[in-house]
Each structure stands twice: as C-alpha cells, then as structure tokens.
Nucleic acid binder design. Sequence first.
DNA 1: GTCTATATGGCGATAGAC
DNA 2: GTCTATCGCCATATAGAC
Lengths: 210, 210
Amino acid sequence: MRTSTERSRARGKRGSYAKTEATRTAILDAALEVFAQSGFRSGSLRDVAAKVGMSEAGMLYHFPSKSALLAAVLERRDEHAQDFVPLGTHDPADTLRGLVDLADYNASVPGVVELYCILSAEATTPDHPAHTYFVTRYEDTRRRVSEAFERLRSEGRLRVEIDPTEAAVATLSMMDGLQVQWLLDRDAVDMAESLRGFFRSIVEIDFPAT
Amino acid sequence: MRTSTERSRARGKRGSYAKTEATRTAILDAALEVFAQSGFRSGSLRDVAAKVGMSEAGMLYHFPSKSALLAAVLERRDEHAQDFVPLGTHDPADTLRGLVDLADYNASVPGVVELYCILSAEATTPDHPAHTYFVTRYEDTRRRVSEAFERLRSEGRLRVEIDPTEAAVATLSMMDGLQVQWLLDRDAVDMAESLRGFFRSIVEIDFPAT
DNA sequence: GTCTATATGGCGATAGAC
DNA sequence: GTCTATCGCCATATAGAC
C-alpha cells in the first residue's frame, strides 16, 4: 500500500500523492460504469463527475480530456484481463483454458463487457479516439492465439484441416459475438460453456470440471 | 418503440404521393450512412438532414422522432437481408449457405455492417430505443438457425456431439464477431470464408465453388 | 486539488408561416 | 411538404478564486 507521499508514484505517469491516486482510481471506476452504460461517445463527463462526487472541472485536472480518460480506462482493464491468459512459455492449451476462464470472469462484470462491446464497435470508424488501440490490440491477440494453435497443431492436437490463423480469427469472433448475445439475453447464453464447446470441436483438449 | 409511420406505410399500399415516398427513401439512405458512421446516439438528425439536403424540421415531418427514423432504417434493412436466407421449407443446408451468402454480400456494404455492429452493441442497454428490437431479433434468428441444425442432425449431417441450439448460438456469435474484426482490419478477415470454415467444422455440407 | 462560473457550441424537438 | 426561427437542454473545455 502506498501511503507515503514520496513513494506513491505508481507508473511515473502522473499524480504524486496518495490522495490523487485514490481520486484517480475513483474517477476510473466511475468512468468505467458510465462508458459501459452509454458508450464513449454518449457517456458524458457530467455523469462521471456526478458519480464520483466532484465537479467536471475538478475531474479534468486529473484527466485533461475525455479521450485521455478513456485511454486510462482501457489500459487499466487490459492489465487486469491479461492476468487470466498465460501466453507463450506455457502449455499452449493453457492459453485456451485461460480464455475460457476470462469468459467466465467476464460474466461477473457485465459493465466491463458492455464497455468493450460498445467501444470496439464504435472504434471501428477510423476517426474514433480508440481506433488504433483496438486495431493493434486485435492484431496482437490474433497473433498470440494463433501461435497457441500452431503449437497445438505441431503436437497433433488441432484438427488437421484447420488453419491456426483461421482458428484464431474464429476464436476472437466467438468471444466477441458471445458477449453481445449474452448482454442481450443472459439466460440464453453461457459464454464460457459455449467457448469450451467451440474449442472442443476443433482441438483435443481437456478442461477442468465445469 | 412505436414507429408512427403507419400513415404512409400501410400494408400493401404505400404513400399517397410518389414524391413523399422518394423523400422517405432519400432520408433512410442518408440516415443509414450517418448512423453507420457515428452510431445512433451520436449520429445527429442535423447530419442526416444536411446529407439529404433538407432542414431538420422538414425531415421530422416524415419521421416524427429520431427513434422512429431508426426503427424505419432497421425495418428496411431486415426486409433486404431476409431475401438471402431461405428458411423452414427448404433443404436446411440452404439456410447455412444463405448465411454465407449474406456474409459475402455484407462485405460489399461496410456502412450497413457498421450500423449493425454499433447499434447491436449500443442496444444491449435496456433503455436504448432499439433494445427490444434486437432482443426479439436474436431470439427469432437463434430459433430459426437452431431448427436448421436440428433438421441437419436428424439427417445425420451434424456432428453427433453438437447440440443444435449451441450451434445456433455459435453461428450468430461467429457472424457478429467476424464483422467487428473485419471492420477493424478488412485485410485480416474474410467473413464469408471464415463462416464457411466454421460450418465445415461442425456439419457435413457442400458449398458452391468459392 | 477542487471549486464556481462561464464560454461556446451541438442536440432534438416544436410552432407557425408559406 | 418544407421552411425559418427558436426553445431548452446538455456537452466539453477553460479561467480564475480558494
């Protein structure tokens, strides 16, 4: 826990005092909620400020613009999500199991899922502040998942007629599409279970008991 | 979400004057473009009016509110999309082939795809004007696609361990997710080809030469 | 570090003339 | 059927007091 004024510099980005750091966190929490509910374009700084209990101007001291706020929200979320998915050095099957774990966890934070669905769709237009973020994020993820499938294939665990890159595209599509369907009707869809089923249909892999 | 457009759109007979109908069509075309680029919440009537070359007030004569305009856009698009996908009475494999054809066609109208991705994500929040539209639309589509898979299974063409309902959920997820990925990087994804590949991995089915 | 006050502008929708 | 004019609201962002 950072309590001293000297040691509270977290990532060298900003904020030198513990109180600032706490305020920033509160703002990010509120922003996540608001953007998740209304999207980035329609979600207003007014709503975020109201939720965090301060003025809009006071908030803009910490994040100088709406886009800067969005970037910080995305960054923080990514750090968290990556804890779920082991990459590269492990058994490649762990990567797929990690994605299932992530889907399972996501079902407990609908607000975050909403934010991502709305934002990734909004950001498909090139002039959106998060456009390049999402483009590179998908490139990276596709490449990493594709590598996992490649290693599975080299171990003879991927069905022979399936291309690893295609499998990666399909995996990301499945995850994204499941989220929209789940948000629209949470009883009709079990994201983790459907993703497991998809993996089982293309790769030989064991999953922990459901 | 009441459309209130019944006046000029009664069942068989349309608007009384050709000019009204032409104007309505021009407005719908412009609205599709604007909503596709900015989403519904951020896309403005002002932009639509400018694109169609008339005043906002003049436009609101034809569609009394922004929500009414959205509803009309969705309705018109649905009519068009359903021409691609034969349902019920045909060979169930035709339904899947129709979905691939639809994906192929969609690649030629990125604006429409954008509209759908952004809108379906926005509309996951219950207070969105198009929320119930999307909920019932997904229910219907899931049911119809599920029926096609059931018939395929009864003919022994669906892989035995796959549940038809699960296959329907997965199919819609795949289609939706492919759209987002394709919009973000059109070179990295071939929607129709990926969908074909997905179908081939779960069902025995022939597709016309690519 | 947070506030009040305000500048500046876009938004959906309505009223009423032609 | 379309217009001009306007209302009332909300947005992002800045200036300067405390």
